[in-house]
Structures are given as structure tokens and as C-alpha cells.
Write a protein that binds this DNA or RNA. Structure first.
Lengths: 249, 249
DNA sequence: AACAATTTGTCCGTATGTATA
DNA sequence: TTATACATACGGACAAATTGT
């Protein structure tokens, strides 16, 4: 069942080139028995036979994965997987996106890409329990793990209650600490919804994804001790580099 | 920000046809301001201008979405969105995949596609806290909402403890009730991990997806009142038809 | 009823990209 | 490298259906 590439059929004329379908299959096969204990993939000729395609087509797939940094190949030796285990992000009542990665990465960092002061859209106003068009502050952030972009998030805060959240965040590089400076010493995640879609243009740029990559989208509302909404956020994760885990409350 | 298709760039030569990229954009634009209050899309000529492509290319994208059942078009009138709101599946300690859809669909159903009695793989044995190669019973199931396939799941149970789980499930069409017949009156979801990937061949067949579609994969362990693992499961959801929600414990 | 404007459906041809041998 | 077949993308022209005047 695992890593069984042989049964996987390819489809022609569906708008996705064969070499790209094969690339997706190889990506999925990695870590599921496709490579050997040394991280070496089967030779191109064998892969071509398994998929039932010409060796040139497999080479195109491998070239793309090398370009993405997933594989590396050495003439005469073979093609190898660059080790990159998926990060696991915890989701739950105590979710803090900046935390929860201990032991998984050496270095993590959240960049502030920009911030605005603007009226809330209908969606945001509802989520934050504000009057329509009441002002919010929007932060645009990017999370990196060991220098690799893994998340891209947008967060909205009620401007009246958190006028200085942007500068606090710029100073501390942490939502939890920026909220603490604003007088919020505890908060929890009231709800999170998760969906998946293809990366759009912003995603491919900010997360350094290849077009056609998949992003996991997590939308959530944080509330203070009294249950009042203090933050609405939408985070896009690279589905290749991240998985989410829901721990029992 | 919402429904802003104009800024979205297309990418040539990346192995994904333009018409397919445009199809993804339209799919994403639906519900975010692309269609008007009657569910009508902008005319093909206008979409072509926005995307900077030929009308034929837009037509190819629309044809694919019509084939998928997302759109419908009428000569001389326009192209319309077939209303189909995304299902929301709750994930949490009390997760029961068969439940939680009340009010969202008229009719729901879980089919048993097959079952086996087999030795556990290393992964399964670890998850269920079994000795290596101890026997498990595997159920293959498919969930439908109003006749449309939305989930495809595989569940493993310790064979020693639940010898008749397959026949119980075949009778009741519910995991909760099948476990109840096995003497488990309460259980909870200890952990869930969520990832996203492209649909493989099995997914496209069983969930009636188009090749290149996205699936959300949820892996979870259910434990009994004493915290002993009773079930490991892996469920694939069509990302187009489903979102997951994590409610606060 | 008649006509114009709008929009989708179909046909032609041509150039480029993808995949095989 | 070359040749071949098919999918993709473009451009234009016109037919068919619907709506508004």
C-alpha cells in the first residue's frame, strides 16, 4: 500500500503535463518507501518503466524537483532525496503559531512584511464582533524555519483596543508578546477552520513555492479571558513543508 | 482584496496548462466576489481580458468546471455557479465522522467498500500500541453527502479485541455503533494530524475527482475510556467540497 | 413585431509545447 | 539529432440564443 507507485495511473489531456504528474507522485512517494535507506531514488530507467513513460519525461520531472530543492542528483551515482522532514504545527486552544516548533527546527523567526490601519470588511467585522467598518489593524507576516519560508499569515486586530500592536510586534516579533504589551496576558484560540487549495500568486512569491503547489489555509479567532475576540487570522502553510496536528483539549 | 483576479499572474511552461490555472482561479474566486448576486460569472470575453489570455483558453477552463459540476452555462445568457456550499467537518476530542453534519446535508451515508484481516504494519502497530505484526482488521469506507462522495477513509482495529467489527459496521453503517456492539460505549479522539496533497488514482476514482484535485488527509487515533488505542484511521476529504474545523476543547 | 446588443457555441487555421520513438 | 503525433494557446469569423429597446 505504501509507496506503491506502480498502480498509480497517469492521465493525458487533463491540463497537467505528464512530467509534472510524475513529479507529484515522486514527491508523495518520498518518505513512503520510494527511496532506499540512503535516500537514493530508483534509476531513471526503472522509474520510466514503472510509470510507463519515456525516460526523458522522468528526467523532466526530476529536473523540476531538483530546481525546487527536493532532490539532488550526481552523475553516475544516482538521484538522492534532500532530507527535509515535514514540520508539525500544533492547533488547539493554546495555539501559538510562534511556539510549538521546539525540537523540530534550530531557528525560527517571524518577519513583519507590512501593516495597515483600515476599516474592517464584513467578514472581519463579524469575526471580531465589531460594528461594520470599524477600524482594524492588519499585520502581514511570514514565518521561517531555519531560513525556509513555511507560513504566511495575515492578522486583524480591533484598532480601538490595540492601537500599537504593529509597533509592539515589530519590536518583539511575537504575537503573544505584542498582545502582552497591550495588556492581554492570556488568550485562547476559540475556533480554527482548515481548508486546502492551490497556491495563488502571493503564496508562490512569499513562500517560494512552485506554481501549482498546495497550501493549507487555517483561519482562526483568538479571544481574551472574557471570551471577547481580539484577533482574527488567516495563515497559509506550504503543504509540502507542514502538517497540522490537533491535540485533544 | 477579495475576488481580485486581475493581479493574479499566470505561469507558462511550468507543466500546468493555462486553462487549468484559470480554472483554479475561478474556483477560488467563487464566493469571494467573482460572481454577481445571481451567481453569474463575468462574460468569457471579460475574463479573457482580465487574465490576459484568449477567450478559447477561458472557455477550456469553464468547460472543465462544468464537467466537474461547479458551473453551468446557457447560450446567450451567461455562465452561472451551481450553488454548493462547502461542508464543514468538526475535528476534536468528540469527533465522530458520521455525525457533525446535521443541518448541512439532507442525507448522509457511509458505505463499506471492503474489509480485510491482516498483520499490522510498523506504522499501524505503533499507533495502536500493538506488538509488531499482531493482527488488525482494516475497513475501507466511503462517506457520501446527498449522494456526493466527500470522504474516503481507511480504519484499522486490533483484531484480538474487535473480531466482529466488520460485520457490526456492515449492519449499522456507523463506527460509533459498531464499537458500541463491541462493548465500547465511549471513546475520544486522542490526536489528529492534517496534511494536504494532490489526489492519487484511488482518490480520483472513489471520490469522483478530476486529476490534479486536492485532498485533505486527516490521520487520527481513537482511544477508549482508559486511554488505550482502539482505532487508527486515515481519511481523505475532497478539498473542494470540505473544510475542517477545530472547535475549542 | 422587428431590431440591436450581448453572450455563448462552433468552425477555421496556425504556432508552440509535450511526449514518444 | 530528427521525425511524428497530440495537446495547448492564439486569432479571427460567424452562428445561435437571450435580452432590451
Amino acid at each position: 500500500m505504501e509507496g506503491d507507485l506502480a498502480k498509480s495511473a497517469l492521465h493525458r489531456g487533463v491540463g497537467v503535463a505528464l512530467w509534472r504528474q510524475i513529479g507529484d507522485e515522486i514527491r508523495r512517494g518520498i518518505g513512503a518507501g520510494l527511496e532506499d535507506e540512503n535516500g537514493r531514488l530508483p534509476p531513471e530507467a526503472e522509474l520510466a518503466a514503472r510509470f510507463g513513460v519515456n525516460r526523458h519525461t522522468v528526467r523532466a520531472a526530476i529536473a523540476a524537483l531538483i530546481h525546487e530543492g527536493v532532490l539532488r542528483s550526481e552523475q553516475g551515482r544516482g538521484t538522492y532525496v534532500r532530507r527535509q522532514k515535514r514540520l508539525t504545527y500544533p492547533i488547539g486552544a493554546r495555539t501559538r503559531f510562534s511556539a510549538g516548533l521546539e525540537g523540530q527546527v534550530r531557528e525560527r523567526q517571524i518577519e513583519l512584511l507590512g501593516h495597515t490601519h483600515e476599516p474592517a470588511t464584513a467578514t472581519i467585522a463579524t469575526a471580531l464582533d465589531l460594528r461594520p467598518s470599524e477600524d482594524v489593524i492588519r499585520l502581514e507576516m511570514r514565518g521561517l524555519a531555519d531560513g525556509v519560508p513555511v507560513s504566511r499569515s495575515t492578522a486583524w486586530f480591533p484598532a480601538a483596543r490595540f492601537p500599537d500592536i504593529a509597533s509592539y510586534f515589530a519590536e518583539k516579533h511575537s504575537i503573544t508578546e505584542a498582545l502582552a504589551l497591550s495588556g492581554i496576558n492570556d488568550y485562547r484560540r476559540a475556533s480554527t477552520t482548515i481548508e486546502a487549495r492551490h497556491a495563488d500568486d502571493t503564496d508562490t512569491r512569499d513562500l517560494k513555492l512552485s506554481p501549482g503547489a498546495i497550501v493549507l489555509v487555517a483561519r482562526g479567532i483568538n479571544v481574551d479571558g472574557d471570551g471577547r475576540p481580539i484577533q482574527y487570522s488567516q495563515t497559509r502553510f506550504s503543504a509540502d513543508r507542514v502538517e497540522l496536528t490537533v491535540s485533544a483539549g
